[in-house]
Design a protein around this nucleic acid. Structure first.
Lengths: 366, 366
DNA sequence: CTGAAAGCGCTAACAA
DNA sequence: TTGTTAGCGCTTTCAG
C-alpha cells in the first residue's frame, strides 16, 4: 500500500497522455491497437486500479445502485475483537439441543432473496450493489448518505419516511419494493398478494369443498396482510359467504403467534375444516399446535400459509402456500431502475409479479 | 431531478463559504450554533445530498467496504421487463407440489449470513457495504472494479485468483474469509473446522460408544472438507483406530449426493453404527435414504452433519451437527478490517471463531 | 488517433 | 470561528 498509481503514473509509464489512458479503459476501440497494448502493459505493471470516486465525480455516475431495507431484529453483541484475537475462548463447545426449536425471522429470508435477485441483475448490467439496512430512527440519514453514492436507489416500502423519499427522488431515481401505495410517484414492484390469496381460498372452497374456514391474519399495519385479507374476503363474497362470520385470529407473522392461534382454535367448540394463514410462519405455528394435539392434517383440518419460505417445504406435513417470487422482485426492481436511468422522463411504472399457489400435503392429503 | 444542489448552492443560500458548509456536515461542533442552523436550514430547503464521489475523492476515503463472493449457481432467466410491464402474464398459477422436495443451495445460506453479519458491523462503524458476487472468469476484473470504490475488501477464500489479490492488496487492505491459507499475508477469519469435527467424533466414539463409523466427505478441493476430515482423522488416531479402514464416501456437499452415499451404505453388507458427514446437506441426504429404508435413527444408526443450517434443525429426526457462526464470520471480518484501517502497519492477524456441537435427535435418541 | 485543458463537488490545510 | 485556495483522479469536449 505504498501509494496507489494514478492515470498520471500510467500515462508517464506508457508515454502517452492521461486522456489516452482513460480512453483505453473506457472505449478501447477508439485507440490504436499498439498504443492500447502499451497502456495495458503499464496498467498491469503498475497494478493500476482506477479510483471509483474520481471516475464517479468526473462522469457524474457512480456505476452503483443502492438497496435500502428496514432493520432486522436486534442482534446479540459479540465479544470484542481483542478477545477473539487473544484466542481466549475455547474453539468449540457442546450444546444439548435436543427438543429445541429456534425460530428464524421471516424478514431475513425475504431480504436475502430480494438481495440475491437484485445483486444478480445489477451485476449483469454492470452495476455494483450497495446495501444498507436501516436501524432505529436514522433511516432518513442513512438513506440520504446512500443516495449520495449511487445512481439509483431501491427502497423497501415503508423503510424510509415519505418526506425523505421525495427529497431523494429529486436527486436520483427511486424504485419502491412491495408497495403499490406510491405507485403514482415512483416506479414500483409488487406481488399479486390479493390474487394469490383469492385463488388459494377459491381452491379450498370450490375444490376441497370446505366452507368452514378460520383465518389467521397478520399485523394490522402490514400492507401485505391487508392485500391478502382482501383477496380472501373477495373469494368468500363471490360465493355468497359472509367474511364477518369467519373465525379470525390476528398474529404477528411469527411461528409462535401461529401456535397460539392454533391453540385458540383447538380450545373452541369445534375446529374449522380449514385454517388459512396470512403467512407461512403462522401456518407452521398452527401446524405445530395441531400436531401436538394429534389432529390430522389435512384429513381433519386443512392448513395453508403464504410466502413460500423454505421451512414451509420441510414441515410435516409440507405446507400448502402461495409462493411469492422474492428473487424476481429484486431483479424486476433493477430492471425498472435501468429503464428509468435510460429514460428519466418515462411514466412511473409498476410491475406486479405473479405468485404460485403451491398445493402440498397440508391441504391435498389423502 | 432537475439539478442536484451542491455545496456552492447551499453556501450561497446560507450566506457562508463552502468550507463552512463542509464543516457543518463533518464536524458540526467546530461551527457556531447560529451559523450551523442557518446552514442546516439551507440544506433542508434545497434538499442537498452530498456527493459521495466528490467526498471520496477529496478525502481519499470512500466510507464503503466491499464484500466479494464467488458465484452462485446459474439462475433461471426471467421474462423481459417489457412483458412484465405489459402485464401479459397471469397474476397467479397453481402448482401441484405434492411429493416434491427441492434442494436449496447451501452456499447461498452461507453467503446470506456472512453478509448479514458484515452489514451489521459495517453499519455500526459508519461504513456502507458494497457486495459483488463473481461469475465466470471475470472475478479478477470485478474485484478490481470493486477495489477502486471501497476502503477495504472482504474476500471469500478462493473467489479471487491469488495474483490478483496481491495486486489489490497494494492498494487497499484485504481480509480473507474462511481460509487460513493466506494467513501469512492477509488478515483472515476462519472457523474451527478441525476442532469441531474432532470434538463431534470424540463424542460419538467416547460417549456413544460407537467405533463402527462411516464418513461422507465433500469435494477434494474444499479446504473446509480437508480441515474437517483432519479433525475426524485425528480423533480416530488418538484412540488407536485406523482411519484407513473407515468406510469413506465422497459427495458434492449436496443433499442428493448424501442420499446416494446413504444408499451405498445400505447396499453394503452391514450398516455402520454411525455416519459422520462433512456437511449438513449430505447428512440430510443420508437421513433421507435411511428413512426411506426404514432404518431407525439414531437407534440403529447415528447420523451427523456440519454447518448448522436451518434445514438441519427441521428434519426428522433433527440432525446433530456442528454449527459454524457464519454471521460472526462477517462481523469479525469487519472488525479486523477496522483494525487494519486504523493501523495499517499492524501484523496480519487471524481470527478463528469457535463452533458449537449441537447434539440433537439424530445422535442422542432414546 | 491523440493531447491539452477545463472542470466534476468536496475536503483540508492555511490564513485571516 | 470562518474564508481562501489547492488539489483529489478521472472524463470529456475541443483542437490538432
Amino acid at each position: 500500500m505504498t501509494k496507489a498509481p494514478t492515470v498520471y503514473d500510467v500515462a508517464a509509464d506508457a508515454g502517452v497522455s492521461i486522456a489516452t489512458v482513460s480512453r483505453v479503459l473506457r472505449r478501447p476501440e477508439d485507440v490504436r491497437a499498439s498504443t492500447r497494448e502499451r497502456v495495458m502493459d503499464s496498467v498491469r505493471d503498475l497494478g493500476y486500479v482506477p479510483s471509483g470516486s474520481a471516475r464517479g465525480l468526473a462522469a457524474r455516475r457512480t456505476g452503483a445502485l443502492g438497496l435500502y431495507f428496514p432493520g432486522f431484529d436486534a442482534m446479540d453483541d459479540m465479544g470484542e475483537l481483542s478477545d477473539l484475537l487473544a484466542d481466549a475462548s475455547p474453539s468449540y463447545s457442546f450444546v444439548d439441543d435436543v427438543g429445541a426449536a429456534p425460530e428464524s425471522h421471516q424478514f431475513n429470508l425475504y431480504f436475502d432473496e430480494v438481495l440475491r435477485g437484485a445483486e444478480l441483475e445489477a451485476w449483469r448490467r454492470g452495476f455494483a450493489l450497495t446495501v444498507a439496512v436501516g436501524r432505529g430512527g436514522l433511516a432518513a440519514d442513512a438513506a440520504r448518505d446512500m443516495a449520495g453514492r449511487v445512481d439509483g436507489l431501491l427502497v423497501l416500502a415503508q423503510s424510509v419516511p415519505d418526506a425523505a423519499l421525495e427529497q431523494l427522488a429529486r436527486r436520483i431515481p427511486i424504485v419502491v419494493l412491495a408497495s403499490a401505495a406510491h405507485s403514482g410517484a415512483f416506479d414500483s414492484v409488487t406481488v399479486s398478494n390479493h390474487e394469490g390469496m383469492h385463488a388459494l381460498t377459491a381452491h379450498v372452497i370450490d375444490d376441497l369443498g370446505i366452507r368452514d374456514i378460520a383465518y389467521v391474519a397478520g399485523p394490522l399495519d402490514s400492507p401485505d396482510d391487508n392485500d391478502r385479507w382482501a383477496g380472501f374476503e373477495s373469494a368468500l363474497l363471490e360465493r355468497g359467504m359472509d367474511p364477518g362470520r369467519v373465525r379470525l385470529r390476528r398474529g404477528e407473522f411469527t411461528r409462535a403467534s401461529g401456535r397460539l392461534a392454533g391453540a385458540y382454535l383447538l380450545a373452541s367448540d369445534a375446529m374449522p375444516k380449514a385454517v388459512i394463514c396470512a403467512n407461512d410462519q403462522m401456518g407452521l405455528g398452527v401446524l405445530d399446535a395441531l400436531n401436538e394435539a394429534g389432529i390430522r392434517v389435512p384429513q381433519e383440518v386443512v392448513v395453508t400459509g403464504f410466502d413460500g419460505i423454505e421451512a414451509a417445504n420441510l414441515s410435516s406435513p409440507r405446507l400448502t402456500t402461495v409462493h411469492q417470487p422474492m428473487e424476481l422482485v429484486g431483479r424486476a426492481a433493477i430492471q425498472l431502475m435501468q429503464r428509468r436511468l435510460d429514460d428519466p422522463e418515462a411514466e412511473p411504472a409498476s410491475i406486479r409479479l405473479p405468485v404460485k399457489v403451491l398445493l402440498r400435503e397440508s391441504s391435498e392429503g389423502s
